[in-house]
Design a protein around this nucleic acid. Structure first.
Lengths: 344, 344
DNA sequence: ATGAAAGCGCTAACAG
DNA sequence: CTGTTAGCGCTTTCAT
């Protein structure tokens, strides 16, 4: 048996190494690295060069532990199984990259029932702030965060008073526009596939639909509203119900694109043509919407921008914890493609 | 001006608090928390109870800094703009959750040209290991990681010798099966839309296609191969080229689903029916594949499982750094849906 | 079986 | 402008 020689792993270089190399104290190195103003230019240069030469890379956990910034923000999402989330993340990532922040990804589904403890850990951990895409916010989350004065921003959430910073879209207006568009196309019986009604955006979209109907003097017909849950299969089922009615609607407004895809499938299986026999409109405008056939007419929700704005808001808050909470609502936009046609 | 009272933010509870509460030294608390064997049962219980009572949550950065595990693994991806990545992440996340690990997400596109430094930082930072989905691996990545004995696993990569642990799928076989299926359906002229040929999986799929043709005594026709880049628009363009040929193919094999969707669009725009006039088959089996119409016949790549296995491999390696690198190749499977039809 | 004490790499007063 | 000195919360010897 040969003695395994203790491999000298190249220990990572610390500011102490840099200090020695550049002949200053390591706090000066820290200052330079943190962009502290009052450092002699020549010293700064010397330190920077030494750092470069040695291939120094900061140890974020140490920095964060010592009271500095970790340059990491957390993102809490229900799961990744939806393009909708992906779009938002893209925006977040972009903005964070621009500011040299990194992203820690947390999925809630992981610790069902222990989310609160999870959030506590996150806030107590190495992130400088937290972005939350949690449709169903147990207010406990927010309470903890708020109580600890931990910077956070809610995405796509409406409820909650004015204690939290929130970024969302004009759900009501978007739904209103979509419905109105359908009416202007001549549709009178418009089916509506809802989202989970515990979620504010779902409620707002239903309200927008109702208001538009109202403004167009079309009586609201409860039976035309089918409950979905934002997932594709529920759209499929809801559409089937709608099609089974004695007088099926001539158009369907789905509360999101995913359910619209399900509805399209149900419609096709019923031997009907889109938009020939029945028009369909979605909400979100996820990338897939322009890939399916026919291309889906839908309400564009600026998801990536929402992500970007939320990140920006969070960064501001990290920068200045005194900043009051802000609510930013971004506009939606009707995207007319091929899934709707005039009626009657 | 009223003096702003210094709000006593509820400082997070540390092991010191727990130590005081349970009347032991804080190193004992640490032992209990780390499952150290030789602790008196009664002590253990007392500590655990105190921790519970106080609502203690570990500070991972401190732990990691002190030489323990951070319970965080990094994931380096090119970007999130592809369901393919999403599927893999889902698998990873699942496996990590099962083992109480969290995920740090890094996107490479952020620091083009500085990826190497980026990787260095990651490895030096707070993660216990790194998962990489980087089709185009600059070998420098791997060298650094390997040199530092930093645990890492490559996903969906083939090249590289035996120094790295790798998880991938049977790209060659999958392409072979798909092609063979088309041939058995009677197709003789089968168009092929390739991926970026710098990527190993793209090459392997092309090889599988060629081999199948060969085994079926069909001469390989270079002109039937169009170069794509794995993104939808390139599939669209490639299909258009194919359709413009004097004798267009009766079937098209696209190296991934996304390009297949582009091809489907081109085919439809040419007034052709799928699969009536032309059959199409994809690769990956991303969720969207069963949502488009007609539902796409494709080669299933067990993306989520690849993620799960990669995570498992990484965790093993973190547990025991001596573990030799392993390559695990998962099987693909032909999923027959509605986009292909017999010919001739 | 448990306490004491030495850091991990870094930031942030505090002195000059 | 820069060096000195405390820690941040935790793991890990080293004692006992």
């Amino acid at each position: 048996m040969v003695e395994q020689p203790e491999q000298d792993l190249p220990r990572s270089v610390t500011i102490i190494d840099v200090a020695r190399e550049s002949g200053v104290s390591y706090s000066t190195v820290s200052r330079v690295l943190n962009g502290y103003e009052y450092v002699k230019e020549s010293t700064r240069r010397r330190v920077l060069e030494a750092a470069e030469r040695l291939g120094y890379v900061a140890n974020l956990q140490a920095r964060s532990l010592a009271g500095g910034r970790s340059q990491i923000v957390g993102l809490l999402v229900p799961g990744l199984d939806n393009d909708y989330i992906g779009e938002i993340i893209r925006g977040i990532d972009e903005e964070l990259a621009r500011n040299d922040y990194d992203l820690m990804l947390y999925t809630t589904h992981r610790r069902v029932g222990k989310e609160t403890e999870y959030v506590k850990m996150i806030a107590n951990g190495l992130t400088d702030g937290l972005l939350l895409i949690v449709p169903l916010i147990p207010s406990t989350y927010v309470d903890i965060l708020h109580q600890q004065r931990f910077p956070y921003v809610l995405i796509d959430q409406s409820e909650n008073g004015d204690t939290s910073s929130v970024v969302n879209a004009t759900n009501w207006q978007g739904a209103y526009d979509a419905t109105r568009y359908l009416v202007e196309l001549g549709h009178r019986r418009i089916g509506f596939i809802s989202g989970m009604m515990e979620i504010s955006s779902a409620v707002e979209r239903l309200e927008g639909y109702k208001s538009a109907l109202d403004d167009c003097q079309i009586a609201f017909d409860e039976s035309l509203v089918k409950q979905g849950n934002f997932w594709q299969p529920s759209g499929y089922a809801a559409a089937q119900e709608l099609l089974r009615m004695d007088t099926p609607p001539s158009a369907i407004f789905s509360s999101n694109d995913l359910m619209a895809f399900g509805a399209m499938q149900a419609i096709r299986e019923a031997g009907l043509d889109i938009p020939g026999d029945i028009s369909i409109i979605g909400f979100d405008n996820i990338p897939m919407a322009s890939i399916v056939h026919p291309k889906l007419t839908t309400v564009h929700q600026p998801l990536d921008q929402m992500g970007r704005v939320a990140a920006k808001l969070l960064l501001e808050q990290i920068e200045d914890p005194q900043k009051p909470a802000r609510r930013i609502t971004l506009g939606t936009q009707l995207i007319i493609r091929d899934s709707c046609r005039s009626f009657g």
